Computed example of a mutant assay.
Amino acid sequence: MPELLGPVEVRALAKELDVRPTKKLGQNFVHDTNTVRRIVTASGVTGDDVALEVGPGLGSLTLALLPVCKAVVAVEIDPVLAARLPATAAEFAPSFASRLSVVGADAMRVTADQLGAAPTALVANLPYNVSVPIVLHLLAELPSLQTGLVMVQSEVADRMAAGPGSRVYGVPSVKLAWYADARRAGPVPRSVFWPVPNVDSALVAFTRRESPSTVSREALFALVDAAFAQRRKTLRAALATWAGSPDRAGQLLTAAGVDPSSRGEQLGIADFVRIAEAAQ
Rank of each mutant, 00 (worst) to 15 (best):
T241K: 15
V174N: 13
E53C: 11
E265I: 08
Q230W: 04
S211K: 08
E16N: 07
V215S: 12
G186P: 07
A222N: 12
A162T: 07
K233H: 14
S262Q: 12
T120F: 01
G250H: 14
V45A: 15
G104S: 11
T22K: 14
G163H: 04
P7Y: 02
A14E: 11
A117Y: 09
E210F: 00
F221N: 06
A97L: 13
F221P: 00
V123G: 06
R231I: 12
V135C: 02
R236W: 10
Y179K: 04
A117E: 12
A42L: 15
R231F: 10
R99C: 08
S131I: 00
A105R: 14
S191W: 11
G257W: 12
R184M: 03
S43Y: 03
A202I: 05
G257S: 08
R232S: 04
G163C: 09
P2S: 07
K23F: 11
P21F: 09
A121G: 02
A219Q: 13
A249E: 04
L252P: 04
E16L: 15
V123Q: 12
R263M: 11
P86C: 12
R217T: 04
F96Q: 13
W194K: 02
A51W: 00
S216Q: 03
L223C: 10
A237M: 10
L220K: 04
V72Q: 12
C69N: 04
L145T: 06
R11P: 02
L65Q: 02
A90C: 03
A276V: 12
D32M: 06
T88G: 01
R248H: 14
V171W: 04
P197K: 05
V30D: 02
L25T: 00
P172T: 02
D78Y: 03
R231H: 06
Q280R: 15
I77D: 00
L220Y: 08
I134Q: 05
T111E: 07
G170L: 10
G57L: 06
Q27G: 06
P164M: 04
V10N: 09
S262P: 00
S191L: 11
A180G: 05
P86T: 12
K24V: 13
P67E: 10
D48H: 14
V75S: 02
D78M: 02
T41F: 05
A229E: 14
D259R: 12
S154Y: 10
G268Q: 07
M160C: 10
P260S: 14
T22L: 09
L122H: 01
V171G: 01
G26L: 06
D78P: 08
A118T: 11
L61K: 08
T111Y: 03
A222L: 14
K70I: 02
A237H: 13
V110L: 09
A90N: 06
V19I: 15
T111C: 01
L176G: 00
G57M: 09
I275F: 05
A124C: 04
A162S: 14
F92G: 03
V156A: 06
